[in-house]
């Protein structure tokens, strides 16, 4: 009995059901590092730590959020095959007139990008709240005079004409042609100014002038000629944010543009609940405080992609490795800060679901929700035991999911769902 209890303790998380629910008050993390002064605070877009005025925009429903998340996932998967296919996917999915006028790019949906940071732009500095996204590259913000149109945002819309450090990039500049590899679009020209266009998987888009400007991450971290998109025509599911901070691997991403200062190293902690805070830290201070850091190499399958690809080798649930043939994982895995769920090949997901349900067999299942098919009703429980889920990556790296990294609460504790799903196609 002692052995069984020890095993149970070792392979399960014990969680207070009430802790799964979002709080209405913000509790900042006590582990925010600010180790070297190059850290930004990360908060959940819809949580109490966010300064965004949510009344300004229509908050999407849970079902809409998951639909957008799936669109983003599908778009990443089509993009992965080839840029041409990504374009075809967009044309197939889109019905809007605007989408036919803007070339496709390799971004993703934005309604599901939930984590935001605040940076400074221009001289004098204006504060802008941006979604941070490791799944795309170009940083952009809405700009006056919003020649097309701008959606409502919480911060004042950036006006380059009031900044002494803003410069347009000309069409003849080699910088303009970098847009082909970043957003993947052929830039266009307007009165000799380079024009970028990015269209995302859910038909959200930003179109505007490609410029350079002073970017202030922290008081000590200022970048004079940061290349970004000054959006004149922006529509979509961006919430009340001012735009996007691109952290992909392309030349135009923040990571590459600040490589001389930070050496292409950054880290983040996403807040475990929507009522707490995390951090986004740049430079060599990242992760060094911990002796428990485990590194896995980038996947060679993604060497020509701006996505961060890893090699997933196996999955364990409650201490038992799932019987999944290695070939199932041969299509690779991307780590993305902007997708909510984890999407697995169908065989892998079915094995995970079966093992998880078996480990949770003493709990009452709840109604399925959207693409989430494994939900529980914890209404009559104070505490629950969740089987630990471990992903094994190349290099002997076993990563155990946190207790807050397993479930999504849909409406209340009566519908708490496993936050994993299966791809539609084994080849996705």
């Amino acid at each position: 009995r002692e052995t069984i209890e020890k095993n149970l303790l070792h392979h399960t998380h014990t969680v207070q059901v009430s802790s799964l629910l979002p709080s209405t008050t913000c509790t900042p993390s006590t582990k925010d590092p600010h180790r070297n002064g190059s850290s930004l605070k990360v908060v959940h877009k819809h949580g109490p730590c966010s300064q965004l005025n949510q009344d300004k925009t229509k908050t999407p429903t849970d079902a809409e959020i998951l639909e957008q998340d799936q669109l983003r996932a599908e778009f990443i998967q089509y993009s992965r095959r080839s840029k041409r296919l990504g374009g075809e996917f967009l044309r197939r999915k889109s019905g809007s007139k605007a989408s036919t006028n803007i070339p496709a790019n390799l971004g993703g949906s934005f309604g599901t990008n939930n984590y935001i940071v605040t940076v400074g732009l221009g001289t004098p500095k204006r504060s802008l709240t941006l979604v941070f996204d490791t799944g795309s590259d170009l940083t952009w913000t809405q700009c006056q005079p919003c020649a097309g149109s701008c959606y409502d945002q919480n911060d004042a819309i950036f006006d380059p004409s009031y900044s002494s450090t803003y410069t347009n990039i000309t069409c003849s500049s080699p910088l303009c042609s970098q847009l082909i590899s970043g957003p993947g679009n052929q830039p266009t020209c307007s009165s000799s100014t380079c024009v970028y266009g990015v269209l995302y998987g859910d038909n959200s888009f930003s179109l505007g002038f490609f410029g350079k400007e002073k970017l202030t991450l922290t008081a000590k971290d200022v970048f004079k000629d940061f290349l970004f998109g000054c959006g004149q025509y922006n529509k979509g599911l961006f919430g009340a944010t001012a735009g996007l901070l691109g952290l992909g691997r392309d030349k135009l991403s923040l990571v590459e543009q600040t490589a001389n200062r930070y050496g292409r190293i950054f880290s983040y902690c996403l807040p475990p609940t929507s009522s707490s805070t995390g951090h986004l830290t740049f430079g060599k201070g990242s992760g060094k405080a911990s002796n428990t850091i485990k590194f896995t190499p980038f996947s060679k399958s993604y060497s020509k992609s701006s996505f961060y690809g890893l090699d997933l080798l196996g999955i364990s649930v409650a201490g038992d490795k799932l019987a999944i043939p290695p070939s199932v994982f041969s299509t690779g895995l991307i780590i993305d800060s902007g997708t909510i769920l984890t999407y697995l090949p169908p065989t892998a997901y079915n094995a995970l679901r079966t093992a998880f349900r078996q480990a949770m067999k003493n709990y009452t299942m709840g109604e399925a929700f959207s693409i989430l098919d494994t939900c529980y009703d914890f209404s009559n429980r104070n505490t629950i035991s969740i089987p630990k889920i471990v992903f094994s990556f190349r290099g002997g790296v076993d990563v155990e999911m946190d207790k807050f990294g397993v479930f999504l609460v849909v409406r209340s504790v009566s519908q708490v769902c496993l936050a994993f799903t299966g791809n539609k196609n084994a080849n996705d």
């Binding site: 993390s29 582990k31 996932a73 990443i76 998967q77 939930n114 984590y115 490791t134 952290l247 691997r249 490589a259 050496g263 292409r264 190293i265 950054f266 880290s267 983040y268 902690c269 996403l270 807040p271 475990p272 609940t273 990242s286 992760g287 911990s290 428990t292 850091i293 485990k294 590194f295 896995t296 190499p297 980038f298 961060y308 690779g332 895995l333 991307i334 780590i335 993305d336 800060s337 902007g338 997708t339 909510i340 769920l341 984890t342 999407y343 697995l344 892998a348 992903f391 790296v397 990563v399 155990e400 999911m401 946190d402 807050f404 990294g405 397993v406 999504l408 936050a419 791809n423 996705d428």
Partner: peptide, 30 residues
């Protein structure tokens, strides 16, 4: 292509060493 989403990244410190072509995880690092 599988995708490792942001729900599963909660509570993990994720370290991107792009120059070193590797990603690090610190379980419980947040």
């Amino acid at each position: 292509t599988a995708i490792f989403g942001n729900t599963q990244q909660r509570g993990l410190e994720v370290v991107y060493d792009v120059g070193g072509s590797r990603i690090g995880f610190v379980p419980g690092g947040c």
